[in-house]
């Protein structure tokens, strides 16, 4: 089942309450997300993106995963 942008944002918000979050895409299957959060400071991209995947709580895992593709951009605030 596809995920709406606001559902993705809500999930991310639970893990990153103070982040700047922008979710794009309209088909619910191929979506994009940008997360800018202080907790990313000092982490490399792999660590940052793992944290985002973890926040999505398996929505993208397995054949039953709801999201097919998510474009990810992560960084710490400038």
């Amino acid at each position: 089942m596809p995920m709406q942008a606001h559902e993705i944002e809500e999930l991310l918000r639970q893990s990153f309450p103070d982040a700047e979050i922008q979710v794009g895409g309209t088909d619910g299957v191929h979506m994009s997300a940008m997360v800018i959060d202080e907790s990313f400071r000092g982490k490399n991209r792999v660590q940052q993106q793992r944290a985002v995947y973890a926040a999505l709580k398996g929505k993208m895992d397995g054949p039953d995963g709801e999201l097919h593709a998510l474009a990810l951009t992560t960084k710490a605030p400038e």
Partner: peptide, 23 residues
């Protein structure tokens, strides 16, 4: 869904693939 990317087009949108298999 992605079209085959030519090297010169590598880019601007950062997309990661989320395909899956039985876990």
């Amino acid at each position: 869904s992605g079209a085959v990317a030519k090297a010169a087009e590598v880019a601007t949108d950062f997309v990661s693939s989320l395909h899956d298999g039985p876990s």
